[in-house]
Simulated assay, not measured.
Amino acid sequence: MSDRSNGTPGNSGAVATADDRPDDLAHADPGLPPHRPRLSDTQPRAAKRNERQVSLLFVVSIVGTLLFFFGYFFIRLDNTVATLRLQNLLLGLGTAFAMFGIGIGIVHWAKTLMPDHEWVEERHEIRPESDRRDAERIVTGILSESGIGRRPLIRNTLIGAGALAVLPAIAIFRDLGPLPGNALRRTMWDRGVRLSRDPDGTPIRAADVTIGSVFHVIPEGLNEAEDKLEQKAKAVVLLMRLEPADLNPSPGRENWAYEGIVAYSKICTHVGCPVALYEQRTHHLLCPCHQSTFDVTQECKVIFGPAAHPLPQLPIMVDDQGYLVAQSDFLDPVGPSFWERG
């Protein structure tokens, strides 16, 4: 009787199991592809060439950082467009080369010189008393695989590139200057400072402000200030005249206006855009950036849009010559409300 009649498969259709295989085949790794060695794995000259290429990329990073510093410290701005463009070009190219060189260098190092074959390590229980030794062995293995210990050219250029790469950020932070302290809360407005037209600085008489008119206002003397732009960014004001009966001052602010003339900061409390649109019929001020809307009859309360706070009001009065003057500085912080209001 044949093997087939007994239920035993014949040679033509037999499938070997792991138990039927020889020991070397039964324990072969079935999941990992065969490793194909690279030129740098078999040829020392190729490995040396790749090492020089990685080091060259790190040197490119160093040169980029030095280029950034040259543009930052040695290109003196003289208020010309050409000089500004040159500095921006050097800063941009320097930053790009610094980041490109160190990034591509590390990638090229990993691709050509670090071990690229895969292996499987069986999971094993880590005993508490051996944790430190295991960690040391892992770190030692990583350093050995990277080849940083036996490749001083790569190691030294990487250290130089890494040390210099962070310096441009430190240099840029230097330009932020000292902490502002109370500088953001203070403007040029003070008791007795006249309200003057922007930009010519002509003082404004109360009689010049008619119902429905709007004046863009700066403190008198601002045009002569050394930090004119910085001071104007905080102190610029919108001046309007309404019927006194239309105003609804809160307790303590009854004398902040003069015969219906009110003054409010022009800087939106959302992100600092100029509030420059006044709708006479509704007495609304509109910020064109994000459509925040303020009601002048309600002390510039926000009635629409993302602004979170009313526009700060400048208390005003009239001096002996009939000119509008400030009673004090703003009592609320000017500008966006995110920095602020403690």
Rank of each mutant, 00 (worst) to 15 (best):
K48N: 09
R49E: 01
E51T: 14
Q53T: 14
Q53H: 12
V54L: 04
L56C: 06
V59G: 02
V59C: 02
V59P: 00
V60G: 02
S61I: 04
V63C: 07
G64W: 06
T65G: 07
L66P: 06
L66I: 02
L67I: 15
F68P: 06
F68T: 09
F69G: 10
G71F: 03
G71I: 06
G71L: 03
G71H: 02
Y72S: 06
Y72N: 07
Y72M: 06
I75V: 15
I75N: 08
I75S: 00
R76F: 10
R76T: 15
R76D: 13
L77T: 12
L77C: 12
D78P: 01
V81R: 02
R85T: 02
L86R: 07
Q87L: 05
L90T: 02
L90I: 00
L91D: 09
L91S: 13
G92Q: 10
L93T: 10
L93D: 10
L93S: 13
G94I: 00
T95E: 06
A96N: 13
A98W: 10
M99G: 13
G101Q: 01
G101F: 07
I102E: 02
I102K: 05
G103Q: 04
G105F: 00
G105Q: 03
G105H: 07
G105S: 03
I106N: 09
I106D: 00
I106H: 09
V107S: 00
V107A: 08
H108K: 14
W109N: 03
W109Q: 03
T112M: 03
P115V: 06
D116P: 04
D116I: 08
H117V: 09
H117M: 11
E118L: 15
E118Q: 15
V120N: 12
E121P: 01
E122I: 09
R123L: 12
R123M: 13
